[in-house]
């Protein structure tokens, strides 16, 4: 109790005074993210086989996979929607994907002005061909 601790504290802050800042001027400079970063999602729709495993793996029922059957009775992707407001970014869907069609990307600025914009539509077939196969959403 003689003030030495106070002086030591002052010495430490004085030393820190000359160190370089560790912060980043964010909107101008951005940090390099690791490849595993859990950002938003990218769907390689040509790889997707519309198996719906991601839909099942999701703990919060975020994902909605719509599929149609084509002429060879093969399932094809019709739509892929994610309710991002419920997403936990846990990565279970990415892990469940057997063809690596669904992956994380490096996008992290996900704030939106309108609530409707939060919904992420990764794939939407332009015109759903009628007659052949049924839509299953």
């Amino acid at each position: 109790m003689n003030g030495m601790g106070l002086l030591k504290g002052l010495a430490i802050t004085f030393k820190e005074l000359w160190k370089k800042p560790v912060t980043l001027e964010y909107p101008e400079k951005k940090e390099k993210l690791p490849p595993r970063f859990h950002g938003s999602f990218t769907l390689y729709s040509e790889k997707c086989i519309a198996c719906g495993l991601c839909q099942q793996a999701c703990p919060n029922k975020v994902i909605k996979v719509g599929s149609i059957k084509d002429e060879n009775n093969k399932r094809k992707l019709a739509s892929y929607e994610m309710e991002m407001k419920y997403c936990l970014f846990c990565g279970l869907c990415v892990e469940a994907c057997p063809t690596n069609a669904l992956v994380f990307n490096q996008e992290y600025e996900l704030a939106k002005y309108n609530v409707e914009d939060i919904k992420l539509t990764l794939f939407k077939k332009e015109q759903i061909t009628t007659g052949e196969g049924s839509e299953n959403v």
Binding site: L33, P34, R36, F37, H38, L88, G91, E95, F104
Partner: peptide, 23 residues
């Protein structure tokens, strides 16, 4: 973040192991 992809809520462990190897 490098290991799991997340900074706070990792969901890194799986029953029987871990989600990813060391990068």
């Amino acid at each position: 973040e490098m290991l799991t992809g997340s900074r706070m809520t990792f969901s890194f462990m799986r029953i029987g192991g871990v989600a990813d190897d060391l990068p």
